[in-house]
Amino acid sequence: MNFMDWYRADRLPTIFCVGCGNGTVINCALTAVSEVGWKREEVVFVSGIGCSSRAPGYIDADSLHTTHGRALAFATGIKLANPDLQLVVFTGDGDLAAIGGNHFIHACRRNVDMTVICMNNQIYGMTGGQGSPTTPRGALSTTTPYGAEEGTFDLTALSIAAGANFAARWTSYHVKELTNAIRAGLETPGFSFIEAAVQCPTGYGRRNRLREPEDMIEFFRTHSMLRQKYDRLLAEGKLVPPDTIVVGEFVRRDRPVLGGKK
């Protein structure tokens, strides 16, 4: 099976804007699911609310499109009630880190056996471009018209601190690496968190001098830095630009898992 076999043909095209990065991430995820050989009958795709959360609706398998921020709590119930099911959760930065922040840290703490893919576009796309907990300081959005003043969450660091067994961050530019990271997440028992920076030309780029999709992809290409290099530079006391996106695998460990196969 390849990733196209997983789509519900009668649901296409998607609602995503031209140039949106979400499709890339869904393709990577479905490629990874195909590679690990999971059958449709054994996997459930779960999501909350937002652009990213529309993903399960396009996948031909059991899927639960839930309420805003609560996907991980729903998924926890599914996994614990039937540990034989494999759980993949699609979420976004607003869904996961704002309204769903508490469920996020507790799902990590419990180390529930599931793979969570967060499409971080640094904005609320579905509602038209409002600031989120990952909107960079200074960036413009419809609710930060004079520039965002608040600090941001590092979602990957948060997942590690809260107890996830696997954490990685890539971008929609890094298709191969992202696919491999998701696959590693699927194969790692416990809570696997994969953060994927995605371009949102409509809601974010347009207001922040990254108007064209390729502008944002180019930004990801030029501003990403491998975690190993980043750590080395820091150790050497060198300056790293603040808008650097640190990518790579951050943790892979074997803490006790909740909801593993019985």
Partner: peptide, 8 residues
């Protein structure tokens, strides 16, 4: 939420 997930 967990109860709904489990029910499914």
């Amino acid at each position: 939420a967990a109860v709904i997930g489990a029910a499914w």
